[in-house]
Design a protein around this nucleic acid. Sequence first.
DNA 1: TTCCATTAGTAATACGTATAATTAAAAGAG
DNA 2: CTCTTTTAATTATACGTATTACTAATGGAA
Lengths: 350, 350
Amino acid sequence: MRSSTQTPRSGGGGERFNPRTTQKDIALAAGVSQAAVSLVLNKSETPSVPDATRARILKFAGEMGYQPHHPARMLRRARTMALACVVPDITNPFYPGLVRGVQSVAAPAGYDVLMFDTDGREEGEARAVSWLLQGRADGVVGTFFHLRVPQLSTLAGQSVPIVRLESRYKAAGDLPIDSVYIDNAEASAAMTRYLIERGHRRIAMILAEVGPSRQRALGYAAVMRAAGLVPDVVTDSRYSEESGARAMSEILARGRDRPTAVFCANDMLAIGAMVSARSAGLSVPDDIAIAGFDDIPAAKLLGLTTVRQPEFDLGALAARTLLERLQPGGLNSRGQSRELKFEVMTRSSA
Amino acid sequence: MRSSTQTPRSGGGGERFNPRTTQKDIALAAGVSQAAVSLVLNKSETPSVPDATRARILKFAGEMGYQPHHPARMLRRARTMALACVVPDITNPFYPGLVRGVQSVAAPAGYDVLMFDTDGREEGEARAVSWLLQGRADGVVGTFFHLRVPQLSTLAGQSVPIVRLESRYKAAGDLPIDSVYIDNAEASAAMTRYLIERGHRRIAMILAEVGPSRQRALGYAAVMRAAGLVPDVVTDSRYSEESGARAMSEILARGRDRPTAVFCANDMLAIGAMVSARSAGLSVPDDIAIAGFDDIPAAKLLGLTTVRQPEFDLGALAARTLLERLQPGGLNSRGQSRELKFEVMTRSSA
DNA sequence: TTCCATTAGTAATACGTATAATTAAAAGAG
DNA sequence: CTCTTTTAATTATACGTATTACTAATGGAA
């Protein structure tokens, strides 16, 4: 019999790292089989294990600091207990808000939240999909600017439910792809009406190339035309401060017949526009009014008039929808599209 | 022989979900063993597999849309290819910045980034540790307000390297626990000197109970005393806007002999303080000057004088440190403490 | 005594992958 | 023609867990 000291397999080179405690180790210590350990650790009632043995196993598990090995569990249970959030840009404070909403529902249900940043580009979204195809999450909350249902169907076809953050109602399909949204066109229309009420006639809109800009532009243009005004749209590439500043400079470069109000497709653009206008020596809102979309935390601080999108609630609703899908049989129903309400937040910038 | 249609095991109940393609499926299709498939897919040169077979395997893998099963890989390789970020509060924009820094290094190296929110409470930090003990990440970048090295050593003892975000130089220990920091006491001293230079004599400081407040208070108090002034500290519970507003109300309630400047332990507190001062009818900086710490994006927009902490670079440095640790033999060296430089950003609020 | 039910477990297997150990066949050396 | 080497693979195993199917021992009923 070899020496029975407690150092299982520490190499000769001064290793000071303990190997992880497994169910096998506990089984050995308690003189039972690994299966017995697994039963005791997982089931609250174990008919086949008497209380004495049960207690012994639990005692050793505690003493040896047992922690279940997550990767092994994922493999065995075919469940990762994780939900993924696919977002275009974590830097945009709208998305951390969304993620918190997801977390607020996921955490109590025992789910982790993973984040994947697509950078708003098609290639990034494609990478997100193949990343998810590797079985990393049980469900996805995602903002996809480029991919449509066909490209997402590979994922949904692998029984990974998806909830998209959309900009309008989406008809149901066969696959477990749901959506949550606020009516972006109507929200945009409401903001445009507000600006017109405030007496503005020349109202420009700054858009980005992708994402919800299309719906937001639709509502704006409809109201403008209905009021006998001419829509005036400037499109820059991204939803960033830089894009907003650039678009605003372009607008200001027009000189005297420039608009009296600028409605930006999101708050990041609006902040960029504000900074640009101020550094051109203009006062907001006296010389030029500015409005945004999303109501990120900074909007309140800056007095930015904007459309409040309930990002936390959208995230929470999306997560709840996913959890329903993950119940037994939850994958069989058709896609749902769930609407939440927006609110026009009137502040000092318009 | 049973029917050999391509529908492996679709239940009778109208299932429309494909099972995932595994190496075994490819092996079957290509008429080789699973091991051959694994070799071809993982090694760029396979002496034992001729080019023809290799090509056939790759062709089938492509056609069948093979994606490696991440959980199985984690189990087999004993590597998760993920780094964890443990943060007190994702809502504080300092931390998304840190996370982006981590991602900027992790992603090119093939690592995912997981986020865990401790809510700044000891219990949350403990939960983070046991979560990590389940083998979910290969390394950790963490901000721990409560846990000290002994509590973290279980993790480090499991060969999970840790990089702490610290507020000062930390002496090396035996375990693979490193730290990155800016000299918080010195940064705080610099800001205090700046406020004194600007003519302030009655300077208060708003602190939170935990975290870097101690070091920041130290630098402030030292400079105040050296200038023959009396340190004046108000401590609230958290690093939040609400705490800042509450502390500021308390200060303003003092009436006429209130301070002329308030230095807040971070920007969230400072923003709360600003809002509170303004809603009390005071002008910033004319009636009361306000300074913060961190330089979150909103600080620039609001004109908040603050200490710039290079959060992105801190995250990137932390991630690089982890990746070094994850190289073979990287766990054997002693803990390092790496310093980055701060900068006092003077804006309109002070 | 024989049979069955209960008690208290254990052995075996599967999840998908990576890799070490092994082998069968073909090619070349002597 | 035999022996060795190379080629082209295969088989077996392990990672840690969960679960199904099985078994050995005991106790009581008929």
